[in-house]
Amino acid sequence: MDEDAVFAFGSALAAIAGLLEEKGVCTATEISQSLGHAAMVHLKAGEQYKPRDYLRAWAVSVKAAADGMNTPQH
């Protein structure tokens, strides 16, 4: 997967996380944490799961959006 696709998918996940948070299903932070946990599982599972490192990038994208959502607007 190329870098642009990784960032685009991360942005899409952040948007979906925002919608789920607005609807009261779960918080965007919870989604970010779940993606982060999945990334750690793959990292610890071995080198054959290295391509799955995308999960970490997506977790960071959702976390950044969640942090932005929780910032007071002026």
Rank of each mutant, 00 (worst) to 15 (best):
Q73I: 12
V41T: 07
E22S: 10
K50A: 12
E3P: 07
E30R: 04
S11V: 05
D2E: 10
A59I: 00
V60Y: 01
R52W: 09
D67F: 14
D53E: 04
P72N: 05
A45L: 08
E30H: 05
E3Q: 13
E30L: 04
A66F: 02
L20R: 08
M69I: 04
T29K: 08
A66S: 12
R56G: 02
L35K: 00
S61W: 03
F7K: 14
D53Q: 13
E3T: 10
K63M: 13
C26M: 10
V6A: 06
L35D: 01
Y54G: 09
I31N: 02
Q33T: 14
A59W: 00
R52Q: 14
G24R: 02
D4R: 14
Y49K: 07
S61E: 01
K50Q: 15
L19F: 11
P72T: 09
Y54H: 08
T71W: 08
A8Q: 15
A38E: 00
K44H: 11
S11R: 08
D4C: 05
T27S: 15
D67K: 10
T27I: 06
A64P: 03
E22P: 01
N70F: 12
T27Q: 05
H74I: 04
S11M: 05
H74Y: 07
R56C: 06
F7E: 15
I31W: 02
M69R: 13
Q33I: 15
G46A: 07
T27G: 10
A64I: 09
V41E: 04
S32K: 00
S32M: 00
H37P: 03
G36S: 06
R52D: 11
A8L: 15
S11T: 11
Y54L: 10
T71Q: 10
K50W: 04
G24V: 03
A65C: 08
H42F: 15
A59V: 03
A15N: 07
K23L: 05
M40S: 12
L43E: 08
A28H: 01
E21F: 06
A5R: 15
A12T: 09
Q33Y: 12
M40F: 06
